[in-house]
Design a protein around this nucleic acid. Structure first.
Lengths: 118, 118
DNA sequence: CGCAGAGATTGACTCCCGTCGATGCGTTGT
DNA sequence: ACAACGCATCGACGGGAGTCAATCTCTGCG
Protein backbone atom coordinates (compact mmCIF):
# COMPACT_ATOMS: atom_id res chain seq x y z
CA UNK A 1 0.00 0.00 0.00
CA UNK A 2 2.75 2.42 0.85
CA UNK A 3 4.65 4.11 -1.93
CA UNK A 4 8.38 4.40 -2.10
CA UNK A 5 9.06 7.91 -3.27
CA UNK A 6 12.77 7.33 -3.23
CA UNK A 7 12.43 4.99 -6.16
CA UNK A 8 11.01 7.78 -8.26
CA UNK A 9 13.27 9.11 -10.97
CA UNK A 10 14.01 12.80 -11.27
CA UNK A 11 11.46 14.20 -13.65
CA UNK A 12 13.61 16.05 -16.12
CA UNK A 13 16.55 13.70 -16.12
CA UNK A 14 15.11 11.28 -18.63
CA UNK A 15 11.70 10.46 -20.06
CA UNK A 16 9.67 8.65 -17.45
CA UNK A 17 8.17 5.30 -18.25
CA UNK A 18 4.46 4.79 -17.74
CA UNK A 19 5.15 2.81 -14.59
CA UNK A 20 7.49 5.40 -13.12
CA UNK A 21 5.00 8.14 -13.84
CA UNK A 22 2.19 6.16 -12.26
CA UNK A 23 4.31 5.51 -9.20
CA UNK A 24 5.24 9.14 -8.74
CA UNK A 25 1.72 10.32 -9.42
CA UNK A 26 0.43 8.16 -6.60
CA UNK A 27 2.43 10.12 -4.07
CA UNK A 28 1.63 13.41 -5.70
CA UNK A 29 -2.07 12.66 -5.66
CA UNK A 30 -1.75 12.13 -1.94
CA UNK A 31 -0.41 15.65 -1.41
CA UNK A 32 -2.44 17.31 -4.16
CA UNK A 33 -5.28 18.08 -1.82
CA UNK A 34 -5.67 21.20 0.30
CA UNK A 35 -6.89 19.27 3.32
CA UNK A 36 -3.96 16.87 3.22
CA UNK A 37 -1.47 19.67 2.66
CA UNK A 38 -2.79 21.36 5.75
CA UNK A 39 -2.64 18.09 7.63
CA UNK A 40 1.02 17.65 6.77
CA UNK A 41 1.63 21.23 7.71
CA UNK A 42 -0.26 20.98 10.97
CA UNK A 43 1.51 17.81 12.00
CA UNK A 44 4.90 19.28 11.18
CA UNK A 45 4.20 22.51 13.00
CA UNK A 46 2.63 20.82 16.00
CA UNK A 47 4.38 20.55 19.30
CA UNK A 48 6.88 17.72 19.23
CA UNK A 49 6.30 17.16 15.53
CA UNK A 50 3.35 14.94 16.18
CA UNK A 51 -0.38 15.37 16.51
CA UNK A 52 -3.47 13.29 17.06
CA UNK A 53 -6.74 13.42 15.19
CA UNK A 54 -8.43 15.49 17.83
CA UNK A 55 -5.78 18.19 17.32
CA UNK A 56 -6.40 18.28 13.59
CA UNK A 57 -10.15 18.13 13.25
CA UNK A 58 -10.92 21.60 14.51
CA UNK A 59 -8.35 23.67 12.59
CA UNK A 60 -9.31 21.91 9.39
CA UNK A 61 -13.02 22.43 9.80
CA UNK A 62 -13.72 18.92 8.56
CA UNK A 63 -15.52 16.05 10.20
CA UNK A 64 -13.59 13.44 12.12
CA UNK A 65 -14.17 10.64 9.58
CA UNK A 66 -12.93 12.87 6.78
CA UNK A 67 -9.78 13.79 8.68
CA UNK A 68 -9.20 10.16 9.50
CA UNK A 69 -9.62 9.31 5.83
CA UNK A 70 -7.08 11.90 4.73
CA UNK A 71 -4.62 10.75 7.34
CA UNK A 72 -4.93 7.22 6.08
CA UNK A 73 -4.19 8.40 2.56
CA UNK A 74 -1.07 10.15 3.78
CA UNK A 75 0.05 7.14 5.78
CA UNK A 76 -0.53 4.85 2.81
CA UNK A 77 1.50 7.21 0.66
CA UNK A 78 4.41 6.87 3.05
CA UNK A 79 4.31 10.49 4.14
CA UNK A 80 3.04 10.02 7.69
CA UNK A 81 3.47 7.42 10.39
CA UNK A 82 0.72 6.39 12.72
CA UNK A 83 1.48 5.54 16.33
CA UNK A 84 -1.44 4.57 18.50
CA UNK A 85 -0.77 5.24 22.16
CA UNK A 86 -3.69 4.40 24.32
CA UNK A 87 -6.83 5.90 22.90
CA UNK A 88 -5.05 8.47 20.79
CA UNK A 89 -3.38 7.99 17.42
CA UNK A 90 -0.32 10.15 16.93
CA UNK A 91 0.91 11.09 13.50
CA UNK A 92 4.37 12.23 12.48
CA UNK A 93 6.07 13.16 9.24
CA UNK A 94 8.17 10.38 7.75
CA UNK A 95 11.69 11.82 7.71
CA UNK A 96 12.87 12.43 4.17
CA UNK A 97 9.62 11.52 2.49
CA UNK A 98 8.69 15.04 1.47
CA UNK A 99 12.27 15.77 0.54
CA UNK A 100 12.39 12.74 -1.71
CA UNK A 101 9.23 13.92 -3.37
CA UNK A 102 10.71 17.38 -3.79
CA UNK A 103 13.86 15.87 -5.25
CA UNK A 104 11.82 13.97 -7.80
CA UNK A 105 10.29 17.20 -9.00
CA UNK A 106 13.37 19.34 -8.76
CA UNK A 107 15.43 20.02 -11.85
CA UNK A 108 18.44 21.04 -9.80
CA UNK A 109 19.47 17.48 -9.11
CA UNK A 110 19.86 16.74 -12.77
CA UNK A 111 22.82 19.08 -13.14
CA UNK A 112 21.81 20.04 -16.70
CA UNK A 113 18.35 21.46 -16.37
CA UNK A 114 19.52 24.61 -18.10
CA UNK A 115 17.68 25.52 -21.30
CA UNK A 116 20.81 24.85 -23.31
CA UNK A 117 21.30 21.17 -23.92
CA UNK A 118 24.24 20.92 -26.15
CA UNK B 1 -5.39 31.13 -14.80
CA UNK B 2 -1.74 30.51 -14.15
CA UNK B 3 -0.64 29.72 -10.65
CA UNK B 4 2.27 31.35 -8.92
CA UNK B 5 4.10 28.56 -7.21
CA UNK B 6 6.69 30.91 -5.82
CA UNK B 7 4.07 32.42 -3.55
CA UNK B 8 3.52 29.07 -1.90
CA UNK B 9 4.84 28.73 1.61
CA UNK B 10 7.14 25.91 2.58
CA UNK B 11 4.96 23.17 3.89
CA UNK B 12 6.56 22.42 7.20
CA UNK B 13 7.56 25.94 8.10
CA UNK B 14 4.26 26.93 9.57
CA UNK B 15 0.68 25.72 9.43
CA UNK B 16 -0.75 26.55 6.03
CA UNK B 17 -3.91 28.57 5.76
CA UNK B 18 -6.79 27.18 3.77
CA UNK B 19 -6.01 29.59 0.97
CA UNK B 20 -2.32 28.73 0.84
CA UNK B 21 -3.14 25.04 0.81
CA UNK B 22 -5.66 25.51 -1.98
CA UNK B 23 -3.15 27.49 -4.00
CA UNK B 24 -0.43 24.91 -3.64
CA UNK B 25 -2.79 22.04 -4.29
CA UNK B 26 -3.75 23.57 -7.61
CA UNK B 27 -0.23 23.20 -8.91
CA UNK B 28 0.18 19.78 -7.35
CA UNK B 29 -3.01 18.56 -8.95
CA UNK B 30 -1.55 19.58 -12.29
CA UNK B 31 1.45 17.31 -11.83
CA UNK B 32 -0.35 14.56 -9.93
CA UNK B 33 -1.20 12.71 -13.11
CA UNK B 34 0.92 10.09 -14.82
CA UNK B 35 0.21 11.44 -18.27
CA UNK B 36 1.20 14.97 -17.30
CA UNK B 37 4.30 13.78 -15.48
CA UNK B 38 5.37 12.00 -18.62
CA UNK B 39 4.58 15.08 -20.66
CA UNK B 40 6.82 17.23 -18.48
CA UNK B 41 9.48 14.58 -18.67
CA UNK B 42 9.18 14.18 -22.42
CA UNK B 43 9.33 17.90 -23.04
CA UNK B 44 12.35 18.29 -20.79
CA UNK B 45 14.17 15.36 -22.35
CA UNK B 46 13.28 16.33 -25.89
CA UNK B 47 15.79 17.82 -28.25
CA UNK B 48 16.24 21.49 -27.55
CA UNK B 49 14.09 21.27 -24.45
CA UNK B 50 10.95 21.74 -26.46
CA UNK B 51 8.44 19.51 -28.17
CA UNK B 52 5.23 19.76 -30.15
CA UNK B 53 2.05 17.79 -29.69
CA UNK B 54 2.87 15.43 -32.52
CA UNK B 55 6.05 14.45 -30.71
CA UNK B 56 4.17 13.64 -27.53
CA UNK B 57 1.10 11.81 -28.71
CA UNK B 58 2.77 8.60 -29.75
CA UNK B 59 5.04 7.93 -26.75
CA UNK B 60 2.14 8.59 -24.43
CA UNK B 61 -0.26 6.29 -26.19
CA UNK B 62 -3.08 8.80 -25.77
CA UNK B 63 -5.25 10.51 -28.30
CA UNK B 64 -4.32 13.92 -29.61
CA UNK B 65 -7.20 15.74 -27.89
CA UNK B 66 -6.24 14.18 -24.58
CA UNK B 67 -2.62 15.21 -24.94
CA UNK B 68 -3.69 18.69 -25.90
CA UNK B 69 -5.90 18.82 -22.83
CA UNK B 70 -3.09 17.77 -20.52
CA UNK B 71 -0.75 20.30 -22.05
CA UNK B 72 -3.30 23.03 -21.44
CA UNK B 73 -3.52 22.02 -17.80
CA UNK B 74 0.25 22.23 -17.46
CA UNK B 75 0.36 25.60 -19.20
CA UNK B 76 -2.42 26.93 -17.00
CA UNK B 77 -0.52 25.71 -13.96
CA UNK B 78 2.49 27.74 -15.05
CA UNK B 79 4.68 24.73 -15.64
CA UNK B 80 4.86 24.86 -19.43
CA UNK B 81 4.95 27.60 -22.03
CA UNK B 82 3.25 27.32 -25.38
CA UNK B 83 4.82 28.82 -28.48
CA UNK B 84 2.94 28.38 -31.72
CA UNK B 85 5.22 28.53 -34.72
CA UNK B 86 3.38 27.96 -37.94
CA UNK B 87 1.21 24.90 -37.65
CA UNK B 88 3.06 23.45 -34.73
CA UNK B 89 2.76 24.36 -31.07
CA UNK B 90 6.02 24.04 -29.17
CA UNK B 91 6.07 23.49 -25.44
CA UNK B 92 8.91 24.17 -23.00
CA UNK B 93 9.39 23.90 -19.28
CA UNK B 94 9.00 27.16 -17.41
CA UNK B 95 12.42 27.70 -15.80
CA UNK B 96 12.21 27.41 -12.04
CA UNK B 97 8.58 26.36 -11.90
CA UNK B 98 9.24 22.78 -10.92
CA UNK B 99 12.00 23.86 -8.57
CA UNK B 100 9.65 26.26 -6.83
CA UNK B 101 7.18 23.46 -6.42
CA UNK B 102 9.89 21.22 -5.07
CA UNK B 103 10.97 23.93 -2.64
CA UNK B 104 7.43 24.23 -1.35
CA UNK B 105 7.42 20.55 -0.50
CA UNK B 106 10.96 20.35 0.77
CA UNK B 107 11.62 20.44 4.49
CA UNK B 108 15.24 21.42 4.04
CA UNK B 109 14.65 25.06 3.20
CA UNK B 110 12.51 25.81 6.19
CA UNK B 111 15.06 25.56 8.91
CA UNK B 112 18.65 26.20 8.01
CA UNK B 113 19.28 25.49 4.35
CA UNK B 114 17.70 28.60 2.94
CA UNK B 115 19.39 29.35 -0.41
CA UNK B 116 18.90 33.08 -0.03
CA UNK B 117 20.42 35.16 2.70
CA UNK B 118 18.71 34.51 5.94
C1' DC C 1 -19.37 -5.63 33.42
C1' DG C 2 -21.13 -1.39 31.70
C1' DC C 3 -20.14 3.28 30.20
C1' DA C 4 -17.65 6.90 27.79
C1' DG C 5 -14.36 8.65 24.58
C1' DA C 6 -11.11 8.40 20.38
C1' DG C 7 -10.64 6.87 16.09
C1' DA C 8 -11.46 3.76 11.99
C1' DT C 9 -14.81 1.86 8.82
C1' DT C 10 -19.03 1.69 5.99
C1' DG C 11 -22.39 3.38 2.80
C1' DA C 12 -24.19 6.90 0.05
C1' DC C 13 -24.04 11.06 -2.35
C1' DT C 14 -22.12 14.52 -5.40
C1' DC C 15 -18.76 16.48 -8.12
C1' DC C 16 -14.53 16.46 -10.54
C1' DC C 17 -11.36 14.38 -13.82
C1' DG C 18 -9.36 11.62 -17.61
C1' DT C 19 -10.52 9.88 -21.92
C1' DC C 20 -12.23 9.64 -26.60
C1' DG C 21 -14.76 10.78 -31.10
C1' DA C 22 -16.30 14.46 -33.72
C1' DT C 23 -15.72 18.95 -35.11
C1' DG C 24 -13.87 23.69 -35.75
C1' DC C 25 -9.96 26.88 -36.72
C1' DG C 26 -5.78 28.41 -38.75
C1' DT C 27 -1.78 27.36 -41.57
C1' DT C 28 0.69 25.14 -45.46
C1' DG C 29 1.11 23.34 -49.99
C1' DT C 30 -0.67 22.38 -54.82
C1' DA D 1 -9.57 27.81 -54.35
C1' DC D 2 -9.09 23.46 -52.61
C1' DA D 3 -7.07 19.81 -50.00
C1' DA D 4 -4.19 18.30 -46.22
C1' DC D 5 -2.20 18.73 -41.83
C1' DG D 6 -1.60 20.25 -36.79
C1' DC D 7 -3.87 21.59 -32.90
C1' DA D 8 -7.75 23.28 -29.88
C1' DT D 9 -12.46 22.86 -28.47
C1' DC D 10 -16.96 20.52 -27.61
C1' DG D 11 -19.95 16.98 -25.92
C1' DA D 12 -20.36 12.75 -23.67
C1' DC D 13 -19.17 8.85 -20.97
C1' DG D 14 -17.14 6.18 -16.97
C1' DG D 15 -14.42 5.99 -12.99
C1' DG D 16 -12.50 7.99 -9.02
C1' DA D 17 -12.21 11.18 -5.05
C1' DG D 18 -13.92 14.14 -1.12
C1' DT D 19 -17.45 14.63 2.18
C1' DC D 20 -20.68 13.45 5.82
C1' DA D 21 -23.89 10.70 9.01
C1' DA D 22 -24.16 6.47 11.12
C1' DT D 23 -21.93 2.65 13.01
C1' DC D 24 -18.30 -0.33 14.76
C1' DT D 25 -13.93 -1.30 17.38
C1' DC D 26 -10.82 -0.66 20.94
C1' DT D 27 -9.11 1.41 25.09
C1' DG D 28 -9.57 3.31 29.76
C1' DC D 29 -12.31 3.86 33.90
C1' DG D 30 -15.31 2.89 37.79
Amino acid sequence: MSVDVASCTPLVRKALTAEQAADLSRVLKAVADPARLRLLSLVAAHEGGEACVCDLTEPLGLSQPTVSHHLKVLVDAGLLTRDKRGVWAWFRLVPGALDALAAALSTAGSRDAAPSSG
